[in-house]
Amino acid sequence: MSKVLLVEDEELNRVLVRAILARATDDMIRRIELVEAGSLQVARDALAEHAVDLILLDVNLPDGNGLSLAADLSAQPDRPQVIALTASVLPHERAAAMSAGCDAFLDKPYGAQDLLKIIGEHLP
């Protein structure tokens, strides 16, 4: 079973991700154990407590930029895959996410199939 950390400050967006995962037809995705964090600090605490395979990372959080978390993780040898989730879709913002150590970028708003596809591509 894979463990995914969802770092998202908006409760509605967390509900959406939970619903998408619950309705997935792929057994591997339906069995994901989802750990949720509503802030950067809660995400850091969760990572200290849980080994995760994948992080769905909102970039704009109330207590900081999610890319700082991606940058911190990029130096770790067995780091989880990181997918940046953001409404900021300008080319330089996408480049900043990739430079910070994100493995992929998904624009908000995203559809269920887009989220499932990118998760499937980045789970070990």
Rank of each mutant, 00 (worst) to 15 (best):
L6T: 05
V7S: 02
V7H: 08
E8G: 07
L12H: 10
L12S: 12
R14H: 06
V15M: 15
V15K: 13
R18Y: 11
A19K: 15
A19I: 07
A22D: 09
A22I: 08
A24K: 06
T25P: 00
T25F: 04
T25R: 15
M28L: 08
M28S: 13
I29H: 05
I29W: 13
R30D: 04
R30E: 12
I32S: 11
V35D: 05
E36V: 14
S39R: 12
S39W: 05
S39P: 07
L40M: 11
Q41N: 15
Q41I: 10
A43C: 13
A43D: 08
D45V: 06
D45S: 12
A46P: 11
A46G: 12
L47A: 03
A48P: 02
A48T: 02
E49F: 03
H50V: 08
V52G: 03
V52S: 08
D53P: 01
D53K: 12
L54C: 10
I55E: 05
L56Q: 06
L57E: 02
V59L: 09
V59N: 01
P62I: 13
D63F: 07
D63P: 01
D63R: 10
N65I: 09
N65A: 09
L67K: 00
A70H: 07
D72E: 15
L73W: 01
L73E: 00
L73M: 04
L73I: 00
L73S: 00
L73G: 00
S74W: 00
S74K: 09
A75S: 03
P77E: 06
P77R: 01
D78C: 00
D78R: 00
D78M: 01
R79I: 03
R79T: 02
R79V: 03
P80S: 11
P80F: 01
I83A: 11
I83T: 08
A84N: 09
A84T: 13
A84P: 02
T86G: 05
A87N: 12
A87Q: 06
S88V: 04
P91Q: 14
P91Y: 05
H92F: 15
E93F: 14
R94H: 09
R94Y: 06
R94C: 10
A95K: 15
A97I: 10
S99C: 07
A100Q: 04
G101P: 07
C102M: 08
D103G: 08
D103R: 05
A104Y: 08
F105C: 03
F105V: 03
F105A: 01
L106M: 04
L106E: 04
L106I: 04
D107C: 12
K108N: 02
K108H: 09
P109I: 14
G111V: 10
A112R: 14
A112K: 15
